[in-house]
């Protein structure tokens, strides 16, 4: 219960109060299979704790759209998970005014062996919606994600990008007041992207709070009005988006050939 505690009386939307967190070193570290195995035999890559965030304090006001910037391993992924409550800080407190709903890049929470309809109910359930609430918003979800054709077929056979559209739309259907958007601000392509954009703009105008990471500077510039730059587990800067992007420009190149550099797939 403590994990996703909500304090309706809180003035800021999300508040970090002296938060420290260390994570076990990723299992995939240390190169490919053989190399990794040798290192493990040598006792080199034991799973010690690596500090990710140290004594971090900040607060995010309701209605703000904040870009969380920083290179790979800067801890922005953990920052967002702490905000949503899917991680617990080692010390310090994270407080939130309302439910924080994560919109995640990967769609691993969907099950290919279930139908699209079943997946919608299950994922919405994970995000705290009762089946009754989901049923009310089912039409909207189907319409938005353009899932009508595959509603009662197994997700296994549906196109790959349907999953991303679904995850995005189901999260939005929670009608939360605070969202955490990771990596891909708007997924899919063409028409769907535009519809997502207008939906998000509408929510912003209505005073919904967003916490965003993205590898697309253009998205952030268009969408956010404040940037938090993380480096070495601390907040390096709390500025406007342009200045913040200037600080982390090297790892955030727009050149598509350099893209893989900034993928911290935790």
């Amino acid at each position: 219960m403590a994990r996703i505690g909500i304090e309706p009386g809180l003035l800021s939307a999300v508040e970090f109060d002296g938060v420290s967190l260390s994570m076990p070193r990723s299992k995939r570290r240390g190169g490919q299979g053989t190399r990794h195995r040798i290192r493990r035999l040598a006792g080199e890559s034991s799973r010690q704790q690596v500090p990710v965030l140290t004594d971090l304090s900040t607060s995010i006001q309701p209605g703000e759209s904040v870009a969380i910037l920083g290179g790979a391993k800067s801890g922005r992924h953990e920052f967002l998970r702490l905000a949503a409550g899917t991680l617990i800080a080692d010390s310090g407190r994270v407080r939130r005014q309302a439910r924080v709903v994560p919109i995640i890049d990967d769609s691993r929470c969907l099950t290919a062996a279930y139908t699209t309809r079943q997946n919608i109910y299950l994922t919405a359930g994970l995000l705290g919606m009762t089946p009754g609430e989901t049923a009310q918003r089912l039409d909207w979800i189907v319409e938005m994600a353009q899932a009508g054709k595959w509603l009662d077929t197994y997700l296994r056979g549906a196109p790959r990008n349907l999953r991303q559209r679904l995850v995005w739309t189901i999260s939005m259907a929670t009608e939360a007041r605070i969202f955490v958007i990771e990596k891909s601000l708007v997924v899919g392509h063409g028409e769907f992207m535009e519809r997502c954009w207008s939906h998000v703009e509408g929510l912003r105008a209505a005073g919904v709070t967003f916490l965003v990471t993205s590898d697309e500077p253009a998205d952030l510039e268009r969408f956010c009005d404040r940037a938090l730059v993380l480096r070495g587990g601390k907040i390096l800067a709390d500025t406007s988006v342009e200045k913040g992007l200037g600080l982390v420009r090297p790892p955030l190149r727009t050149d598509p050939t350099d893209q893989p550099e900034d993928r911290d797939n935790n």
């Binding site: 219960m1 996703i4 949503a84 899917t86 709903v101 994560p102 929470c109 994922t123 359930g125 994970l126």
Partner: peptide
């Protein structure tokens, strides 16, 4: 493990 990353339900 995957749902734990997103799930807002008690663990």
């Amino acid at each position: 493990m995957a749902p734990l990353k997103v799930s807002l339900l008690p663990t």
